[in-house]
Simulated scan of single mutants.
Amino acid sequence: MVVGVSIPALAGLAAADYLVEHIDVDPIGHVSAHGVPSLAPFSEGRPRPHTRLYGAPGSDLTVLVGELFVPVGPSEAYADGILAWAEEAGIEEVTLLAGVPYPHAPEEHAVYYVATDEYRERRLSDTDVQALGGGFLDGAHGELLSRTAEGSAPPTGALVTPSHPPGPDLEAALLFVGALEGIYGLTVDAGELERLSADVRRHYEEMAKRLEAMTEGSATMEGRDLPEDRA
């Protein structure tokens, strides 16, 4: 089961949502949990569950798209809901998509993993995805990884890439889609996501240029010898 939930920068959610729009999947269920804040997303006037599950016909691939932002406090209840559904559905492993805003160099824009040995041997041994050096994950990701470390959840791996809030960080989402293609043998047309990512990048570059021009203009005004107000 591939899990993309709503956290700052939205990279994992964007990747999971793109996946269900561009591969052959059908809606197969949803997750709800007591004590978790409510959210009612809608499209074309129709409400839909905030955490939806999709299955690929003829495959054991399941994708969870979670549009609800879950604070750290209710993460335990949210993880309970996900794992209850996973147990009922016979899910054998969980892949988390975690775009995390942490300091990084430009060459570190890549996908790394935090995973149990069983998950790593099953899914990552034939890939070039490298282990993330150290740190911690909180929220739903941290809760699910804690459960698998304790042996109370299926083998779980988090795919982690540095991301840039507020998002959506579509460049990070592209990295996730590429990693999932290699891990699960998928074929995904990423052309639309690449175009959207380029549009977002241009938008922020133009904003940065305008801000720089405004700052330079302000500095020029401050340096002028203006006449005194003699009124």
Rank of each mutant, 00 (worst) to 15 (best):
E228C: 14
S146E: 13
Y54Q: 04
M207A: 08
P37L: 09
K209L: 08
P74W: 03
E222A: 14
P155E: 13
S197E: 04
R48A: 12
G4W: 02
T127A: 13
Y119C: 10
E212V: 06
H104L: 04
L10N: 04
E222F: 12
L145Q: 07
E21A: 13
A105L: 13
G139R: 05
V65D: 07
V31S: 03
D229K: 07
A33V: 13
D126M: 09
V188Q: 07
A11P: 05
E67Q: 15
Y102I: 05
T62C: 10
H164I: 09
P166D: 06
D138V: 12
V31C: 05
A149D: 12
R147T: 11
S32M: 14
V31M: 06
P168L: 05
D117L: 09
R224A: 15
V65L: 09
P168I: 02
E212A: 15
M207W: 02
R123K: 14
G223I: 14
G135N: 08
V25E: 06
V72C: 08
A190V: 14
E107D: 08
M1W: 07
G55M: 05
G142E: 04
P103F: 01
A79Y: 11
Y184K: 08
E228P: 13
L124P: 06
V111E: 00
F136A: 14
S32P: 08
M214F: 03
S32D: 14
A9P: 13
